[in-house]
């Protein structure tokens, strides 16, 4: 009877942790809750007389997967920008440094990332092979002549970029929810 109460409370805890994982926005917090989820699952397996599965769950779910996630988060070294602009906003020649290039290089130096800018026309097919991991898209609005910086809403870097560009009248930061755009 006592073990039944423990198992039931563990199941309720599991549902709460799963909801927290889905809701939370912070990447590191999400990884830690993922490890906690695996530990609770392993103890549930043990309560239901399956110690073999519990061993595998502890080793893989709460040690290897979170470490792979943390390594992949901490190994981000490049900030990839796709430019659809044709004027000197993003030019990096020595005699004429564009306003946007100056801002973006200062922003990436703050995080220790490497800035990479790819220029592409709208609708061209080159580079479509691996274009899913783009961090920022720069466009020019044809009616108001303002520069639009489009990035993902879930990325933490976008909040800092929005702070930095508050005083610039010509630049507007747009956060796109994941799944709405394809490149």
């Amino acid at each position: 009877m006592n073990a039944m109460i423990i198992a039931d409370s563990l199941q309720i805890l599991l549902i709460i942790i799963a909801a927290v994982i889905v809701i939370s926005k912070d990447n590191l917090q999400m990884v830690v809750f993922f490890a906690v989820f695996s530990l609770v699952t392993a103890s549930l397996y043990y309560f239901n007389q399956a110690p073999d599965v519990a061993l595998a769950e502890v080793a893989i779910g709460s040690a290897i997967m979170p470490l792979i996630f943390i390594i992949s988060i901490s190994r981000q070294r490049e900030f990839i920008v796709i430019s659809h602009v044709n004027d000197e906003f993003l030019s990096n020649h020595t005699y004429k440094i564009g306003k946007g290039y100056e801002l973006l290089s200062e922003f990436t130096r703050h995080y220790g990332l490497k800035l990479k800018i790819y220029k592409s026309e709208l609708g061209s097919l080159k580079g479509i092979f691996r274009s899913r991991n783009v961090d920022l898209i720069v466009e020019k609005c044809p009616s108001t002549h303002r520069y639009l910086l489009k990035g993902k809403e879930s990325s933490i870097l976008m909040n800092k970029l929005e702070q930095m560009t508050e005083n610039e009248p010509l630049i507007e930061v747009i956060k796109i929810r994941e799944g709405e755009t394809d490149d």
Binding site: A56, A63, I64
Partner: peptide, 17 residues
């Protein structure tokens, strides 16, 4: 005892990690 090839291999991989 409980365990086996897959579980022990995962623990070895964690040690090397």
């Amino acid at each position: 005892s409980p365990g086996g090839g897959f579980q022990g291999g995962a623990i070895l991989a964690t040690a090397i990690l």
